[in-house]
């Protein structure tokens, strides 16, 4: 595999079992960090860890549902019209989830409302439909959606957490709005009376933090590869 991380040329891993569809999506084929998809919402919503978590969970739900539907329909979808079909299904599912959150989790909707509609334009959703679900049965597709979604979620939470600590001195502010009153303990004030570094909250801060997270992942991957070379005596080029 080339070291370029552009677009969706990172294909699905060799399945060693059903669970592998899920686990490989968390790190080795991470939507945001490896496939570099879905960066628009990733950069736009991650001003706080809570926003990132909410966006990530909503995206995970959408991915699992659309993956299941498109995988179930994969034999009847004609390649010539597959894109409008998939977009139609994805947009419908996203809009339904948008309405459901607005109706039953209204407090959360006030935090996330603007971003949920954006999931339609999240190219990771169409990307998975196109490159995975159109060729795989329903169960692996759902697992793939869950893995990709949770892989996306943790990246959003990490970026959001870093930006929130730097920008506002808090972590998981308003998390109880998202998860319910039981999660009040999550709301931490890291630096009391902290003015915050404004840059971290503004869009450039998102790019800078993303860059650091990417670099950090590369370092870890290199360490892992070196360790594998030492223990197995074989060279596995990860990137």
């Amino acid at each position: 595999m080339s070291s370029q991380c552009g677009s969706a040329d990172v294909t699905a891993p060799k399945p060693k079992g059903l669970f592998n569809y899920f686990s490989s999506a968390l790190w080795d084929y991470n939507v945001a960090l490896v496939q570099m998809l879905a960066l628009c919402p990733a950069l736009a919503v991650t001003t706080t860890a809570t926003n990132g978590l909410g966006m990530g969970l909503a995206t995970t739900l959408v991915l699992m549902i659309t993956n299941a539907i498109i995988s179930a329909l994969r034999h009847s979808i004609s390649p010539a019209v597959r894109n409008p079909l998939m977009i139609g299904i994805i947009a419908g599912v996203v809009t339904l989830i948008d309405m459901a959150i607005n109706a039953w989790m209204h407090e959360l909707y006030k935090v996330l409302g603007l971003f949920i509609a954006l999931i339609v334009t999240n190219c990771a959703v169409l990307g998975r439909a196109e490159s995975f679900c159109s060729r795989n049965p329903v169960l692996p597709s759902i697992l793939d959606g869950a893995g990709m979604g949770i892989g996306f979620t943790w990246v959003l939470v990490v970026i959001g957490g870093i930006r929130e600590i730097l920008g506002s001195g808090t972590l998981f502010a308003q998390a109880s709005l998202l998860l319910g009153e039981h999660f009040h303990w999550l709301e931490i004030t890291v630096f009391p009376d902290f003015q915050g570094i404004l840059l971290a909250i503004l869009p450039p801060g998102a790019f800078i933090v993303l860059g650091f997270v990417l670099a950090f992942k590369r370092v870890i991957d290199r360490r892992r590869a070196e360790r594998r070379v030492r223990t197995h005596g074989e060279l596995i080029v990860l990137q």
Binding site: D9, T11, A12, C123, R135
Partner: peptide, 11 residues
């Protein structure tokens, strides 16, 4: 998106 079908995952 469609140019690189994952051959091994293909059915």
């Amino acid at each position: 998106l469609s140019q690189t079908p994952p051959a091994e995952a293909g059915e």
